[in-house]
Design a binder for these strands. Structure first.
Lengths: 205, 205
DNA sequence: TGTAACTCGTACAGCGGTGTTCGACTACGG
DNA sequence: CCGTAGTCGAACACCGCTGTACGAGTTACA
C-alpha cells in the first residue's frame, strides 16, 4: 500500500495521484454521482490503485474540491477589487464565472459526500472575499442594506449556479452568460429607490 | 394485487393510497433520496402494500409531484394578477412561497427519478402563469427586456428555492422570507436606468 | 356472516455500489 | 541490474436498495 498518509515516493505514483485528481474533477463535474470505478477507469488506473492513494470516496472528493477551490481562489487574486464596488463586482463575477463553468456539478458531489456544512467551510476564503466586497459596497451606499449580507452573497452564488444550469440546458448562450449574470446581480444588489446600473462594458464580455 | 391501473374499490385501500401519497410528500420533501421502505413505514403501511398501489418508485414520485403541482397551481388561481405587474408579482411570490416551503426538496427527488425534462413538462401550467406576467410587465416597461424572459422566470424560481435553503440553514427568518424574495426579484426584474421599487407593504408580509 | 378484497411479514433474487485481499507482475531509482 | 515500491485484475464480502413471491391473516361490505 503506497503512502496514504505520506506523499508517495515514486515518480509514477505521484503522477497517478495527479491523474486521478484530474479525472475525478472531470467525472464529478459531469456527474456528481460518478462511481469510484468510473473515475479510476477515466484516470487510466486500476480501482485498487486509487484506493491505495485515497482511503475513501469521501477523501477523494474532498481532495478534488480543495484543489478546485484553491485554484479558483488563486485566480480571484488577480482580480482588481478597488474602485467602484459595482464595477469591482462585475470583474469578480467575470472571473468567478470561469471557475463555476469548469467545476460544474462538482459541488453537488461534494455536498452529498461531505455534507453542506463541510463544503461551506472549505469555501471560507472565496466567500469572505465576496463578503468584504459586499460590505464595502453597502458602506458606499451602492449596494442595498435592507437585506442580510449573507443573503446577497447567497444570491450571487445561486444566480451563477443557475446560469450554469441554463447554459447546459441550452437556454443561455455561453457568450451571454457573464453579462446576464452581472446584469441580474447588479440589479438585485441595488438599493430601493436608486436606478439600476447598466453593465459596465468591456468588463463582463 | 389491488387495482394498480383502476381505482381501488375498498375504502381502506383508497385511504391507504392517500396516506402513502401524503407520507411520500413529507419524506421526499425532507430527503429527495428517501427509500420506498421509509415512505411505507411513515405511511403506516407495509412495503408490499405500497407496491400494490404503485408499480415503481418512479410512478409513486410522479403521482406525488403531480398532486403537489396541482394543489399549488390551484392556490395560484386565487391570486389577483391584474394591475401593476410589480405588485402582481409581489402577490404571486407571496402565494408561491407557501407552496415552495411545503414541497421542499420534492422537486429534487422528481428530477432524479423522472428526469428534468419530465419535471419541466409537469410544471407547464404554473410556469406559463409566470411567463404571462413577465411578458405583461415587459410590455408595460416595468420589467427589463434586455435579458431573456426564460432567464427572468428561472431567476424567480431559483431565488425562491434559495430562500428555502437559507431558511432551513437558519440564515433567514421565516417571517422575512417572502419580503426578502420579493425585494430581490423585484430589483432583478427592474430595467436598467430606472429606480428599484420598494416592496409594496401589506402584500408580502 | 361469509366472501372477496386487501394487508401483513418474511424471505428471496438481483443490482450496483464500496472497500478489501490476494498473488503475480512491472518499472522506478539507487 | 537488482530490490522494492507500486500496479494490476480478479475475486470476495458487505451493504442498501428495488421489486417479487408466498401464505396466512384481517377487514370492508353486501
Amino acid at each position: 500500500m503506497p503512502g496514504v498518509t505520506q506523499q508517495p515516493q515514486r515518480a509514477d505514483a505521484r503522477r497517478n495521484v495527479q491523474a486521478i485528481l484530474e479525472a475525478a474533477a472531470v467525472c464529478l463535474s459531469r456527474d456528481p454521482d460518478a462511481s469510484v470505478a468510473e473515475i479510476a477507469r477515466s484516470a487510466g488506473v486500476g480501482r485498487v490503485t486509487l484506493y491505495g492513494h485515497f482511503e475513501n470516496r469521501a477523501v477523494l472528493v474532498e481532495a478534488v474540491v480543495v484543489r478546485a477551490i484553491e485554484e479558483g481562489d488563486a485566480a480571484l487574486d488577480a482580480v482588481d477589487l478597488s474602485g467602484d464596488a459595482r464595477e469591482a463586482l462585475a470583474r469578480l463575477v467575470r472571473q468567478s464565472w470561469l471557475t463555476v463553468v469548469q467545476v460544474g456539478s462538482l459541488l453537488t458531489a461534494a455536498a452529498e459526500a461531505l455534507g453542506p456544512e463541510r463544503v461551506l467551510a472549505l469555501h471560507e476564503r472565496p466567500v469572505s472575499r465576496v463578503e468584504r466586497l459586499v460590505d464595502r459596497g453597502r458602506a458606499d451606499g451602492v449596494f442595498r442594506s435592507d437585506l442580510p449580507a449573507s443573503w446577497l452573497v447567497g444570491t450571487l452564488h445561486r444566480v451563477m449556479h443557475g446560469a450554469a444550469v441554463e447554459l447546459d440546458a441550452g437556454r443561455l448562450a455561453p457568450d451571454d452568460a457573464a453579462t446576464t449574470i452581472t446584469a441580474t446581480v447588479l440589479a438585485a444588489f441595488t438599493p430601493p429607490g436608486t436606478p439600476v446600473p447598466a453593465v459596465p462594458d468591456g468588463v463582463a464580455r
